[in-house]
């Protein structure tokens, strides 16, 4: 690990100002992904700003009926929150499908959104990777790509976003709240938060340098049956090959977002019109233009079948 200096920030504005001022500074909260990458010298911050002391660990009801989740709320606490379990069960389910008990106790809401891909080539400093060393090439293209993206990828990168939580937040139309180094706050709809790789896969979100996430807000509950199905190589503690987040109302209308198949949580609002027609029509619309590799072609079928299973479950719950 490279050496770094360390400070504990007192306020969000102070943390963002320090990040904007100090070259090579990074925020650290749970640290479960950042420290792992620092050990491998894939991340080499010169300065760490510990944000754990900021009072951003509350889950509050909003006057208009939604919920504000502080950036530092741990994954365990968010999944276990009584209001979240009752009104946003999709979010609880997605969180509980990810990582392990130990990691969920540390990992934060903001950190979960900002976690980096688990592409094995990104993690191997001996291999070219446009995300790690821009312009060096992509080893996954033509390499082993079973886990990789089937849609929204580019000639520069076919990595996936690893988060389950973010897939649920996309279906729930969450908003990310931030503050920048000048103390200015802004709100970013989750749909515009993560980026597709394009020709700059090293830029993963639309956050500006030094911009700090302070909270994630959820609009007022939409009800319906909320289900999160995750298909993976072992029953627990593994990343998704494919995941499906479904919110379906009594009349069959609803929302669907997919994980494990793209550089960001994958949702195509127009495809949701096909939900009452069933899994095939919806999957076809969601994955129109998909470009799977030889290794991950199976994911296209797996999306349809997982969606079929989720829709069957939702139908059972409606009966």
């Amino acid at each position: 690990m490279k050496t770094f200096s360390y400070e504990k920030a007192k306020t969000p504005a102070e943390a963002a100002a320090a990040a904007a001022r100090i070259k090579g500074a990074r925020f650290i909260a749970g640290g479960t992904n950042l420290l792992d990458l620092m050990k491998l010298e894939i991340e080499t911050p010169a300065h760490l700003i510990d944000v754990n002391g900021l009072a951003l660990d509350k889950i509050e009801a909003l006057p208009e009926g939604g919920v504000r989740v502080g950036a530092l709320v741990r994954n365990t606490d968010l999944a276990a929150d009584e209001r979240v379990r009752r009104e946003y069960p999709l979010l609880s389910r997605a969180l509980l499908a990810g990582a392990s008990g130990q990691l969920r106790n540390k990992a934060t809401t903001a950190g979960n959104l900002l976690q980096r891909t688990r592409c094995a080539y990104f993690y191997d400093p001996n291999m070219p990777c446009n995300k790690r060393v821009p312009g060096s090439g992509c080893s996954a293209i033509g390499g082993i790509s079973r886990q990789h993206a089937v849609i929204g990828s580019s000639d520069a990168c076919i990595a996936t976003h690893p988060s389950d939580m973010a897939v649920a937040l996309r279906a729930l139309d969450a908003t990310v709240e931030t503050v920048n180094g000048k103390g200015a706050a802004r709100k970013i709809p989750i749909a515009n938060f993560h980026r597709l790789p394009g020709d700059s896969p090293h830029i993963e979100t639309n956050l500006q340098p030094g911009e700090l996430i302070t909270a994630v807000t959820l609009p007022k509950p939409v009800g319906g049956n909320q289900l999160y199905y995750k298909v993976r190589d072992r029953a627990s503690y593994a990343f998704a090959l494919v995941s499906v987040a479904l919110i379906q109302q009594k009349d069959g209308s609803g929302r669907v977002a997919l994980g494990g198949i793209a550089h960001k949580p994958w949702r195509v609002e127009s495809a949701e019109r096909a939900l009452p027609s069933g899994a095939k029509a919806t999957a076809d619309a969601l994955l129109a233009g998909a470009k799977p590799t030889r290794d991950n072609e199976f994911k296209v079928k797996l999306v349809e079948r997982t969606l079929a299973a989720v829709l069957a479950h939702a139908k059972e719950l409606r009966a």
């Binding site: 479960t32 992904n33 688990r118 993690y123 072992r234 503690y237 990343f239």
Partner: peptide
């Protein structure tokens, strides 16, 4: 193994 990689490892 890299990260909590699960089966990617």
């Amino acid at each position: 193994m890299v990260g909590w990689l699960g089966t990617w490892s």
